[in-house]
Design a binder for these strands. Structure first.
Lengths: 188, 188
DNA sequence: TAGGAATAGTCAGATTCTTGAGTATCATGG
DNA sequence: CCATGATACTCAAGAATCTGACTATTCCTA
């Protein structure tokens, strides 16, 4: 039951519709919390029923109308409680690692290909994160921003995403190299 | 539906009971796949019904009897198919990052404490991984082992776990430091 | 000699997540 | 002028996961 807290955290900076939330989730919160649009819509409805977010209808001319949600005081209090309670251990689920684990008993060619693909993906994410970080600090130096900026939460988690992707990228490339080298030496 | 593949991958090296699997999951596969014992028992039953693992009863004197499972040829074929199919993107879920994301609007003291705790945990994991890696390569140098060893899958995923925890540790310490510094400057 | 930890599981129920489809409007490109 | 894609959502069924309790035996310790 912590999707709700991820949603609250995502709504702290701006009022968003379910649809926008689903988009922005991808480029921010999704680094440490994965959810599908359907879940987000459902969670927003529950949060509203519980009074933790407030929705308002926005009538649009050239698009379908939408409902924007913002965090209420009660929602903020709930986040406060959540932050003070002890955190569950982080949990990772990674198909690719399962394949690497089996790689001595299984054809490595597709695994190597997927490692290379994943490395590409990581490279793209890293670029994205770096440009996001730049945008967050609006011309300020990092030190300066981190000391004086008034909203650094998203910056800090973006840094986390960056560290994660950099580590993953390194790992993918190293593992792909190792498996490649063994393919040459050992009979397939 | 990939818990089954994680279980198959975990059973590749040794025949294990559900209970042993649950233990060994913690110290190996759990780095990239989290599951509770109840799930593992249930999954083993399903895998056996599908013929992907074979169980055999082992009568014990000084302990309750147990059922050991090993991967069948069909199970290996299933893993082969899985490895060749395209992998789902890895998915991470991290309470602590949600708290960091909210940290400008929420009391940071408990968040800092949890970051420090998590850093300690990461340090312990790193030590564990390093000793595991040593054990895996049985006295060989890393290069030598990675080129010539006959079973390197678990070594490679352990390397991944190590990279992840090192990155996480760095992040925790850095973020804790930043939040601590701000606590001094900004009114609480 | 009682109590707790470790071994070795099982079961039910609730919650959460995923899959897949469906609705409706407007803008854009060919 | 028609197809595609973006905006903005909704619904339902089924799979997976989590919570929490429960059974039984044996070993070790205080």
């Amino acid at each position: 039951m912590a999707l709700r807290h991820a949603v609250l955290a995502a709504l702290l900076d701006e009022e968003l519709s379910g649809y926008q939330l689903a988009k922005s989730f991808d480029l921010g919160v999704a680094n440490f919390w994965h959810a599908l649009p359907q879940q987000l819509y459902a969670e927003l409805a529950k949060l509203e029923a519980d009074g933790l977010v407030a929705g308002r209808e926005v009538v649009q001319e050239s698009r379908p109308n939408k409902r924007l949600f913002k965090v209420t005081d009660e929602g903020l209090a709930e986040l406060e409680r959540f932050a003070a309670a002890s955190a569950k251990p982080s949990m990772l689920r990674d198909d690719l690692a399962v394949k690497v684990q089996s790689s001595d008993l299984v054809d490595t060619a597709p695994v190597i290909a997927q490692l290379r693909e994943r490395a590409e993906f990581a490279r793209a994410k890293i670029e994205l994160f770096e440009s996001l970080l730049l945008k967050f600090r609006r011309g300020l130096g990092e030190e300066e921003f981190l000391q004086g900026g008034e909203r650094i939460g998203p910056y800090l988690t973006c840094l986390g995403g960056l560290v994660f992707e950099q580590g993953y990228l390194e790992w993918c490339e190293r593992i792909a190299g190792i498996l490649e080298a063994r393919k040459g030496g050992v009979a397939v």
